[in-house]
Amino acid sequence: MYNNILGVFILVIKVDNLTKRYGNLIALDHFNLEVNQGEIFGLLGPNGSGKTTAINCILSLLKYDKGTVEIFNKPMAPDAYDIKKDIGLVMQNVAIFDELTVYENVDYFCGLYIKDRNHRRELVEQAIDFVSIGYYKDFYPKKLSGGLLRRLNIACGIAHQPKLIILDEPTVAVDPQSRSNILEGIQRLNKAGATILYTSHYMEEVEQICTRIAIMDKGRIIATGTKEQLKAMISSGEKIRVELFDMDDNILQDLKKLPHIVSVEYEDNFLIVKSSRGKNNLLAVLDYLKSNNIAFGKIYSEPPTLNDVFLEITGKELRD
């Protein structure tokens, strides 16, 4: 998050007021982003919110209408080769040669960065081990499953051990085993010193691995912070679900009068109570039920999720 020795933040990516239009559609609307060295920075947004567009503009793969992008404190441009050499990109779509084997593919893309053959051989082997596809080294991509292809895609993007790694939804349409393999790998890369920019529309993933998160919608960043900070921003707190078999309107009305309670609903034999921030909300609800001799079954208490954050800011679900 920050340089421990000096105790100051070192900026790796700095994006100011980036604006990108596709005809009438504003894909990026005064988009701002700061990623510090050593972070796993999550860019969370629903489909079509502009994540890929943002990455393409940051990397100068796409022309944009307005704004500035700096990487490693230098302005990014199509011919900024000295910046490019330290970046690794894992694209949303698998981008590899069907005509080359797994090994040849990793070797090719690593070779775009590393000229020295011996050094490269080492790096390629490491990258292949890293995503655990050593067994498939001599396979052609046509023979690989979707999950393995994504792992190969990642190996191709990171084999040259870049300082900054950008991953665009690397876990889309991936089996659970490959997914945890990928997430774990990203954390290992980070530990090894790489700064990570990670986009996803899965809030669980972002919560699981990211040290800081920006939530975006319709081309704008709507909130940035650690997951704790983000959750603290919103008014709703934990969600309490209690199994109840008898129910009447009085109970609902009474519960609504309790402090910090935002909403009370009854659905499928479950009482759902949403509270605002504050402690002991669960106890208060259970006390009420006990003292009125209302029998209840299972009890669940869920802390707020990033979905709740998104819901409260935008008025819609993160995933629909």
Partner: peptide, 16 residues
């Protein structure tokens, strides 16, 4: 093959 948009991108963001 080389004109596939994604492969073009991969080359474009490399120092080649």
């Amino acid at each position: 093959v080389f004109n596939q948009p994604d492969l073009r991108k991969r080359h474009s963001c490399s120092p080649l």
